[in-house]
Computed example of a mutant assay.
Amino acid sequence: MKVFVKDIADILENIAPVKYAHSYDNVGLIVGSFHKKVKNVLITLDLTEEVFYESINKKCDLIISFHPIIFQSIKNITGKTYSERVIIHALKNDTSIYVIHTNLDMVWDGPSSYISKLLKINREKVLFPKKENLKKLTTYVPIDYASKVRNALFEAGAGNISNYSHCSYNFDGFGSYMGNKKTKPFFGKKEVFHMERETCINVIFPNYKLNIIKNALFKSHPYEEIAYEIYNIENISPYIGIGFIGNLMKKMNEYDFLCFIKKKMNVTCIRHSNFREKNIQKIAMITGSGRFGIETAIKEKADVFVSSDLKYHDFFKHEKKILIVDIGHYESEKFTKNLVKSFLDKNFTSISVYESEIHTNPVKYFH
């Protein structure tokens, strides 16, 4: 079975839609073509020149990087920086580069899922839910066609609420219309007033599926002119957003917790605020840079906030209410390679997927 870049991108974007990414981010296909055939894939946290040479040795057609090789616009490509040199290498070797970053961070099955399983944490919800993420569709369908339209909307991705699928609200009534002489009414006759018994269907769906949902409606609905409304709704999903809140299976003291996370996360160095001499059970965590989450973690009454890239003054924010822990940026995200590989292994059997063996952490520790 032939596999193309687009096939892989479709799987990844079904899990982590590109539109979930932060506005500053640069995700999706960065270099190459969606129509390129793929036999071997290399997954990396950072795409350095050394990683690129590794991809050549492994004969990889596609590199999937967590961190973008291009963050901002480039006016010229002369090879003066490592990122420009990687792009030149990729173009010369016909190697495609795909990035999945903050859009993966946003989803429930993303890095937070992997780490919570590793640490045996029972997750409750995300720490920062994504806002303005949902829309609602209301449409009116002849009763005998309601099931067909409703199922088409479900198939397109509408009607999912947390752990429930196929959610809708329906009620019957009468719709009226009278078409002019240019019309071809499905029921009734042109230029004659008509009333038809119809079902009103209401479903919610994520913003990024707007066009898919509309296409499903238009293809499945029997009417020439379809009556429908689409609304933005303020409901917030507890499972889409940055970070997470959860509980350890059992309480432990602060020292034991730091030893536990150091071992499980394979961390060589941990920075932390003063001990409060209280047990740890409720955890707030953001992988990668998360200094913005301290106050929210305190409001959520977490016992500890775990993240990275914290500054000196951030450690004063504990106010004796929370233990603040910095495990390192690379250290908090390094498991992403294994996570993305698991997505591809489940969906493709005819390609080889490799995790980069290169340790790309630019931060070194003197012991």
Score class of each variant (00 low, 15 high):
residue 194 H to G: 02
residue 2 K to A: 04
residue 49 E to Q: 13
residue 304 V to S: 07
residue 273 S to Y: 07
residue 240 I to N: 03
residue 20 Y to E: 01
residue 323 L to I: 10
residue 329 H to C: 12
residue 320 K to Y: 09
residue 31 V to W: 00
residue 282 K to M: 12
residue 280 I to Y: 07
residue 196 E to P: 04
residue 354 Y to D: 04
residue 329 H to G: 09
residue 300 E to H: 12
residue 44 T to L: 09
residue 24 Y to C: 09
residue 92 K to M: 07
residue 35 H to Q: 09
residue 284 A to R: 13
residue 138 T to D: 01
residue 356 S to R: 10
residue 140 Y to Q: 05
residue 221 H to S: 10
residue 93 N to Y: 04
residue 128 F to M: 04
residue 218 F to N: 04
residue 301 K to R: 14
residue 247 N to V: 02
residue 248 L to R: 07
residue 271 R to H: 12
residue 118 L to N: 13
residue 280 I to P: 10
residue 275 F to Q: 07
residue 266 N to R: 15
residue 197 R to N: 08
residue 74 I to K: 15
residue 298 I to S: 09
residue 241 G to T: 11
residue 256 D to M: 14
residue 329 H to T: 08
residue 134 L to S: 09
residue 297 A to K: 11
residue 343 F to R: 06
residue 346 K to Q: 08
residue 301 K to C: 12
residue 141 V to W: 01
residue 237 S to V: 04
residue 16 A to K: 10
residue 204 I to K: 08
residue 63 I to D: 03
residue 232 N to V: 14
residue 188 G to D: 02
residue 291 R to G: 14
residue 317 K to V: 05
residue 223 Y to A: 13
residue 153 L to Q: 03
residue 138 T to L: 07
residue 310 L to D: 00
residue 116 S to Y: 09
residue 322 I to T: 08
residue 325 V to N: 14
